[in-house]
Structures are given as C-alpha cells and as structure tokens.
Design a protein around this nucleic acid. Structure first.
Lengths: 201, 201
DNA sequence: TAATAAAATAAACGATGTTAAATAATTAAC
DNA sequence: GTTAATTATTTAACATCGTTTATTTTATTA
C-alpha cells in the first residue's frame, strides 16, 4: 500500500467513523453530507473526493456494523454451546442488536440503494449475517440427525420472520414497547423452530 | 355534510388521487409536494390548506390501497372456497399485490411516520389487512378442529415471514427476479402452514 | 355595487445532495 | 531554497425539497 493509499484510507476512515456515530446515535434521518463532514472535521465538499456520493459512504458502514453485531451476539451467548438452545439464543441476540440500534436496522434493511445496484457487497453481508452467527448450531444439529434441507428451511423461515417482526416493531410501533417485542420474539423463535405436531386439517 | 365540507372533501380527493397515481406508477421517491400539486392541477401551497403536511396526505392513501388490495385478492381467489387451499391462495395474492406495486409496499411498511405517531389509523389498517383477507379461511379451519390458538400462531408467523420476504425482494434484490420470488413465496407459505413432523433434536 | 371573507398562489426560508470555481497545501524541478 | 506544477480542500452556487408568510385572486354578503 503506497503512501497516498494510506492517507486516502485514513481520510475515508474519518468520514466512515463520523457516519457510524451519527447512524448509531440518531439514525438515518440525521445523517447528511453536511453533518458527517462537520463531525469528521472537514468541509462537506471534501467528502466527494473520497466517496462517489453519500449513499456509497453510508453503505461503507455496513461491514463494520455487521462485525459489531457479531461481536455483540458472540459475547452475549458465549456460554451457550452449539445446539438448539444456542440457536435460539443467538437468533434472539441478533434481533436484539437491531432493537437496540434502530439506526443500524434502517441502514441494513430500509435504506434504498437504487443506483448502487443490488449486487453491492453490503447486500450479501446483510443477508448472510444470521447464517454466520448460527453456523455452529446448525452443524451440531446436523450431527444429531437433523436433515440439512430441514435446517435450511427453518433458517430461512426464522430469518424472514424476525426481519418482519423488527420491521413492524421499529417502523410501525407493533408492539409499541420493548417488553412486548422481546416477549413476542422469544415466543415466535420457539414456535417456529419447534412447531407442534398438528396438521391444519 | 354542509356545502363547504363537500367542497373540502372534493379538494382533498383531488390531491389524494394524484398522490395515489404517483405512488403506484413511480413509487415514493417521485412523490413530492410539488409533483402532487402539479398532477392535481393546483399550486403546491394550496395543498397545505387541506393537509397538515405531505406525510398526512401520503398516509391518507393507505385506506384506498388496502381496499384495492382486498379487491385484487378477492378477485384472484374468488373460486377457491375457505379452507387450507384458500388460505394459501389468499396469502399468496396478498403478497403478489405488493410485488406488483412496490410503491404501495414502500408506503405501507417502509415510509416513516414519526410525527404522526404510531397510533395513526393507517397502522392498524396495514396490520390487520391479511387477517381480514383470510378470516373466512381460519373460520373454516376452526370448524374442522384447528385450535384458535394454533391458528393465531400460524397467522402471525406467516404474516411476519411474508413481510420479511417482500422486504428482501423489493428492497434488497433477494431474490433478484420475480420468478424466484414467486417460487420462494409458494414454498415458504406451504412449509410454514404445514411443517413436517420432525423435531429439531 | 362595495365591503368583506375565503381560497389560491407567489415569494421566500432553511435544508438537502451535488458540482464548478477558487483557494490553500503539497510535491517536483531547478 | 525558491519557484512552478499538481493535488487537496474549501467556498460559492445550483437544483430540489418541505413549509410558512404575504399577496393576489375569487367568492360571498351587505
């Protein structure tokens, strides 16, 4: 890495860090090219020497937040060994990270990235985040006899379901308080992972 | 209704209809107080004589779209009697309405309504839409012996799950094409409503 | 018809993202 | 080490946005 590249990466880092702080503390609504530049200590026009536009900058934060989320989940569930209980706990911790930082949820799932195209790397980071968190749990359940196709189905179901719950809770106030959300979250994870043996008809 | 109230309702209707058309055709990004007013044939300042702000106007469209969605689902599934098959078909048609009109999805689930508060009537219209669509199906399944608590759980699961799927498909390009989404939708509805008798461990 | 009330609009404000021109800082050449 | 060229940064400007205030037009009433 040449001298100029080091400096360039440093400058990008200043802007990215400023954006991260704004996103975490106040959410997307308070992230503007001017507020970022002020926090970074530069003029807002300087930003355009290091990022194509403000959307590129904002989505540069995805990787960092995903790593932070992984760290949060690992720390909160370190004592729980791989398996069914670990799976539930890690899915729960994954969801609670977004409930704690709604601005990160906005960035991951709500913010449009029209022109960046949907092949942007951040989309895959977001999509595969829960899979990475629970890989060991599914592996263990596989060793215990769970077919991998069934594992895949369950993971898909619970991923979509929790994302939908977060959407309603954070964006539509359903449920209105955190307590209600946490309760609902636990109940739904349990029921989806171990559905009762009771056919519809 | 007095003469003035009639005129006021008419004026509100002009703006609401203009907003509806913009939303359906081009999505939220092209909805602005100026574009609405131009389509309605008035100055943009006139809008503020009939709506507190543009968010109030935009959310006034929710009821109309929800009725349109109901009509679409009813029409597409009229021949299917209440029961398990009807349930699947109506949930599918509900999701496909949003896949067809991504702008309506944005309005229903993505657009913030910070200041309007989360007790706004549109939130309940949105939340209960699938319940109203499938009420007869659940009723029939109840008559056939399905416990209402189980029905409630399944409906909750499938509502969150489909919303999550729509979020990923419309906002993150997962899956990238409609075919993939429709296929995934059918598969997930079927699997969630009739999970296999196979415990995790 | 003239005075008054109401409705519609034009003008303006502050904030947004972005670009072009102008200044400051750094590097290269001598 | 001073000057010229290049690069980095900033100021100024533009178009667009939501909203408010002042002004003009339209309708109603005396």
């Amino acid at each position: 890495m040449t001298k100029n590249e080091i400096q360039e990466q440093r400058m990008r880092g200043y802007f990215i860090e400023a954006t991260r702080e704004l996103l975490k503390a106040e959410g997307l609504k308070s992230v503007s090219v001017r507020s970022i530049a002020e926090k970074a200590g530069y003029s807002y026009a300087t930003l355009y020497n290091y990022f194509r536009d403000v959307k590129e900058l904002v989505f540069e934060c995805v990787r960092g937040f995903s790593e932070e989320c992984v760290a949060s989940v690992v720390e909160r569930t370190a004592s729980i060994p791989p398996g069914e209980e670990g799976l539930r706990a890690r899915l729960r911790a994954w969801a609670l990270y977004f409930a704690e930082y709604p601005g990160v949820f906005e960035l991951f799932y709500l913010e449009r990235l029209n022109d960046l195209g949907n092949r942007h790397p951040s989309v895959n980071i977001i999509w595969t985040l829960p899979d990475r968190l629970c890989a060991a749990d599914w592996e263990r359940l596989g060793e215990e006899g769970l077919p991998s196709s069934r594992a895949h189905d369950l993971m898909e179901a619970v991923k979509y379901e929790i994302t939908g719950m977060l959407l309603f809770y954070l964006n539509r106030g359903k449920p209105s308080r955190f307590d209600g959300f946490a309760e609902l979250l636990d109940a739904r994870i349990a029921k989806t992972l171990t559905p009762p043996h009771h056919p519809l008809t």
